[in-house]
Design a protein around this nucleic acid. Structure first.
Lengths: 258, 258
DNA sequence: GTGCACCCTGTCCTAAGGTCAAGGTCAACA
DNA sequence: TGTTGACCTTGACCTTAGGACAGGGTGCAC
C-alpha cells in the first residue's frame, strides 16, 4: 500500500467533496500531491493541513481567488484583507436584506409595488363603477408612470384624485372608458372629445408639461408613452386622444407630440 | 421615424442595461418586440410595462427562471411563490452572516480559528522555551486534530496541558524537539526513546485509543496522520516516534499502526 | 463622405463547484 | 481466475445574471 490518503479519504477527512479538492488544485490553492504507481493522488498530513486552511478561509466567505495571496502575507496584510472581505460580505448582506424587504411588500401588499395612495385611487375608481378593464389600464399607466416619470408621479396621482371628486368629469371619463369598445369611426367620439376638451380647458386641470429644456424631449417621450398606453388595443381611444390633444393644442396649450 | 423606442431608450427609461433587456428576451421573460426596417427592435408601452414588471421582481431577488411562471399564476400562487423566494433569501442571508462572523474571528483572533484553550497552550509552550519551530509544529498538529478528530480534540489538549505541568516531561519533550536537527542515526535517539517510553508508561498519560469498532481503522488513520505530521521533514523524529511506539507496543499498549 | 453613436448577432467569461461520460485500478468474492 | 462494485483519472458541459468583446450594419450630422 502506497502511503498517503487517496483523494476520497482526504476529502472526507477534511469535510469537502472530491470535486472541491480538485478545484483547489486547479486554482493552485493546494499543491498537487505526489501520485502513486496508478496515478492516484496520495495525500500526506502537510497536504491535509493546507486543505484545512483553505477550507477554513473559503467557508468564511473569502473568495478562492484571494486565498492564495492570503497565505503568503504578513499578519497585518492578512487582517486587512479579511476586513476588506468582511466589508464586501456586509454589503452583500445588506443588499439581500433590501431585496427581501421589497419581496415582502410584493408578496403581502400589491403585486405592482404601487404606493398606498395610488392603490387607494384605483380602489375608488372601481367603487365609482369604472370597469375592471379600465381600472386595469389605469393601474398599468400608474406602474409605467412610477418607473418612467417618477418626478411627476405625484401630480399624475393628484390629477386622478381631483377627477374623481368632479362628478361631471367622472361622467365624461366613464364615457371615454366606454369608448374602448366603440368603432373608431363612431360619431360619438368627436362629440365626446369636444366635451372633454372643453371641460379640461375650463378646469385648467392639465398635466404639467415636463420642464427642463435639455431633457424635455426625453421626458415628453416618456410621458407620451404613458399617455398612449393601450391605444393600440383600442383604436377608438387613440382617435379620442388625438382629437382631444388637437383641440387643446388649438386652444394654445403646449402638448408635446409623441 | 418608425414608432416605438429603440432598445437603448427602452433600457434607459426602465433603468436597466441593453444587455439585460436582451437577456430577458432570450429567457422569454419579455416577448421580442417588432423590428423596424433595419432590424432594430422597437418598444411600445406594453413592452415597457412588461420590462418594468420583470425588473421589479428581479430586483426583489426573484430568480429569473421563476419570473416567467409568476406572471401567469393567480394571486395565491403568486404570494406563495414569493414567500418561498423570501425563505431562500433569508437562508442565504443567514449563511452569509455566519460566514461574516467566522471571518471576523479569523481577522481579529487567531488565523487558525483554534479555540482559546489551544492558543493558551501554545503560548505556554513558547514561554517554556520551546523553539518557534516546535510551537509551529504543535499548532499545525492542533489544527489538523481539530478538523480530523474533533471528538478527541479536548483530550489531546488535556494531554498537552498536563505535559506542561510535569517538569520532567517538559525536559524530555524539549530534547525531542531538539532531535529535529539530529541525524537519524544519532545514538541519542535510542536513549531518548527509552526515556520517553518509560515516562509515558509510568504516567499512563497516553492518548485515548479511538473507540467504536466500525470506524476504528478510520479514526486510527486520522490519528496517525496527526501523530506523524512533519515527520517527513525530520527523519530523526520519525525514528524517535517509531522507537517509542515500538516500546509502548512491546509493553502491551494497543497502538494502531498507520 | 466621413465620423460618431447606436444597433445587430455570436462567443467567451465570471464563482464555486456539480454532473456526466468513458475508461483505468483495487480489493473482495465465487 | 474472472467478475463485481467502489474508487480513481481526465475532460467537457452546466449553473446565475449578465458583462466584455468582436465584427459588421444603420442613422444622423457635419
Amino acid at each position: 500500500m502506497a502511503d498517503g490518503l487517496t483523494i476520497g479519504q482526504a476529502a472526507a477527512f477534511v469535510g469537502v467533496t472530491i470535486k472541491t479538492v480538485r478545484h483547489y488544485h486547479r486554482l493552485g490553492l493546494v499543491a498537487e500531491p505526489e501520485r502513486d504507481g496508478s496515478g492516484y493522488r496520495r495525500y500526506r498530513s502537510a497536504d491535509l493541513l493546507r486543505l484545512v486552511q483553505v477550507r477554513t478561509l473559503a467557508e468564511a466567505g473569502v473568495p478562492l481567488a484571494e486565498i492564495g495571496d492570503l497565505f503568503d502575507s504578513d499578519p497585518e496584510e492578512f487582517a486587512a484583507s479579511l476586513d476588506d472581505v468582511e466589508r464586501r460580505l456586509t454589503e452583500r448582506i445588506e443588499d439581500l436584506i433590501a431585496r427581501r424587504d421589497t419581496l415582502h411588500r410584493l408578496a403581502h401588499g400589491d403585486r405592482t409595488l404601487l404606493p398606498d395612495r395610488a392603490r387607494a385611487v384605483l380602489d375608488r375608481l372601481a367603487e365609482r363603477g369604472f370597469s375592471p378593464d379600465y381600472v386595469a389600464a389605469q393601474r398599468e399607466a400608474l406602474v409605467l408612470a412610477q418607473a418612467l416619470v417618477p418626478e411627476i408621479f405625484d401630480s399624475f396621482l393628484t390629477r386622478l384624485e381631483n377627477s374623481l371628486d368632479d362628478p361631471e368629469l367622472v361622467e365624461l371619463t366613464k364615457r371615454g372608458a366606454d369608448a374602448m369598445s366603440w368603432d373608431p369611426d363612431d360619431p360619438r367620439i368627436e362629440e365626446l372629445a369636444s366635451a372633454l376638451a372643453d371641460k379640461l380647458l375650463a378646469d385648467r386641470a392639465l398635466p404639467a408639461p415636463p420642464t427642463g429644456s435639455q431633457s424635455r424631449a426625453d421626458a415628453a417621450a416618456r410621458y407620451g408613452l404613458i399617455d398612449h398606453h393601450r391605444e393600440d388595443q383600442a383604436p377608438a381611444i387613440a382617435r379620442l386622444n388625438a382629437l382631444v390633444e388637437a383641440k387643446l393644442r388649438a386652444a394654445g396649450i403646449d402638448i408635446p407630440r409623441q
